[in-house]
């Protein structure tokens, strides 16, 4: 409540002084537990802002909406640490100018919400470095543990079964702040690189392509996983890729605005386990 009030006041200050044209936050949704994105442009809208432990979705994807930042005006946004990491990646990949983004950082533990110190992405580098120091989630998740214990065949069978439900809605892509391509590879049809049908092959192609495109870029916000209407546990795929790039290349996605994309750069010390 305290953080919510503090942030509402700060949003109004920024709007009153014309320092931002809009703040992207959360408001009450259609059920007690749901929060929905809110675009604040007025004091009345600022009063609708809600900040509590149910504010889960990563809102960073809205920043790359076509035309939003092209007038060079500033936009405020409510972000958890993963959201701030996505701002760093978007900046590193030249998708936005981080100086235009005013961050209302927050984190939650249990039902408690705490404000994070800082307003510009670089203010949070200490925090993000400290997250990197914690090894990537070998989470206590029972399903993740089960997947980790599987041998290759079992794991293949597990994912084949999960992917069999995929309906190729691409909600995972649309919900992902890192999937900002104006034309996704699955939408390229001259030639059609990836089958559009959601049969076994098409579903594998899609989910594997997305896993590779997210390797070293996924910040683990869980947007894809929550958006999937058929409940495929997509978070595990990307968490596993994050773990691989961390172990192989000491790469933790979104540490800075100058971080090089792991699959598009090399270092002479990179491990070469795949070169015989």
């Amino acid at each position: 409540m305290i953080t919510q009030e503090k942030y509402r006041t700060r949003v109004k200050e920024l709007l009153a002084s014309n320092s931002v044209k809009m703040v992207i936050g959360y408001k009450q949704g259609s059920t007690a537990d749901r929060r929905r994105p809110l675009f604040v442009r007025s004091f009345e809208e600022a009063d609708e802002l809600v900040l509590d432990s149910n504010c889960i979705g990563n809102l960073a994807g809205y920043l790359v909406t076509e035309g939003l930042l092209s007038d060079e005006k500033r936009v405020g946004i409510f972000l958890r640490p993963e959201g701030i990491r996505s701002i760093n990646i978007l900046a590193a990949e030249s998708q936005l100018n981080p100086e235009q983004i005013i961050i209302f950082g927050f984190d939650t533990s249990g039902r408690e919400v705490k404000a994070l110190q800082g307003e510009q992405a670089e203010d949070f580098s200490g925090l993000i470095d400290s997250l990197k120091e914690k090894p990537p989630e070998k989470s206590s998740d029972a399903l993740l543990y089960r997947i980790d214990q599987m041998n290759t065949e079992e794991r293949f069978a597990f994912w084949k079964d999960e992917f069999s439900r995929c309906i190729k809605c691409y909600a995972c892509r649309q919900a992902c702040p890192m999937c900002y391509c104006r034309r996704c590879i699955v939408d390229s049809n001259q030639p059609q690189w990836i089958n559009t049908s959601s049969h076994t092959l098409g579903n594998f192609e899609w989910n594997i392509v997305r896993a590779f495109h997210l390797a070293g870029r996924c910040v683990g916000c869980g947007n894809c996983d929550r958006a999937c209407p058929v409940n495929i546990p997509l978070r595990f795929i990307n968490a596993r890729m994050a773990q691989e790039v961390f172990e192989s290349f000491d790469h933790y996605a979104g540490t800075s605005q100058t971080q090089e994309p792991v699959l598009a750069s090399f270092n002479k010390d990179d491990s070469e386990t795949f070169i015989l």
Partner: peptide, 22 residues
């Protein structure tokens, strides 16, 4: 404004019937 165009509303809808031939 907040619609992300994910299409899952149409895919779960019993009456949405649009298709593409490939």
């Amino acid at each position: 404004m907040r619609c992300i165009g994910c299409g899952s509303c149409t895919y779960l809808c019993p009456t949405c019937h649009c298709f593409d031939i490939q």
